[in-house]
């Protein structure tokens, strides 16, 4: 049964290594206070990831239809436009349909 025991030992080692690596994040979490200070002072609203188009550089500030800026249904111009979709519709752009309060005769 040497193979079975060796395999179980190897799997246990792999599982332990994976778990400890996964748990590293919880102990290694960097202090975000310095970054928060930057965000507060400079008024930063987005991550500086893709700078090829304004709707991928600032997805939170772009128009609701940002990924199709030239005309509705236009092909995507930039590769990251496929990776970074338009921002979700928030309360600023929600449409609320409420029942009419006027009485009908």
């Amino acid at each position: 049964m040497i193979r079975a025991i060796a395999y179980l030992a190897l799997t246990t080692f792999l599982a332990a290594a994976t778990t400890s690596l996964l748990l590293v994040g919880t102990t290694q979490s960097s202090d975000p206070s310095a970054k928060r200070q930057l965000v507060k002072v400079l008024g930063i609203s987005d991550l500086s990831l893709s700078s090829e188009a304004r709707y991928t550089r600032h997805p939170t500030q772009a128009d609701v239809f940002a990924a199709f800026q030239d005309f509705p249904g236009a092909f995507e111009h930039f590769p990251t436009g496929s990776m970074i979709p338009p921002r979700p519709i928030g309360f600023a752009s929600q449409v609320r349909i409420q029942p009419s309060t006027e009485k009908q005769d």
Binding site: L21, L22, V24, G25, Q28, S29, S30, S48, L49, S50, S51, E52, T56, F78, P79, T80, G81, M83, I84
Partner: peptide, 16 residues
């Protein structure tokens, strides 16, 4: 995939 045609792309080291 995230870089696309961006010329400036940050070199980042993410926290696990």
């Amino acid at each position: 995939l995230l870089k696309g045609w961006s010329v400036l792309f940050p070199k980042f080291q993410l926290t696990p």
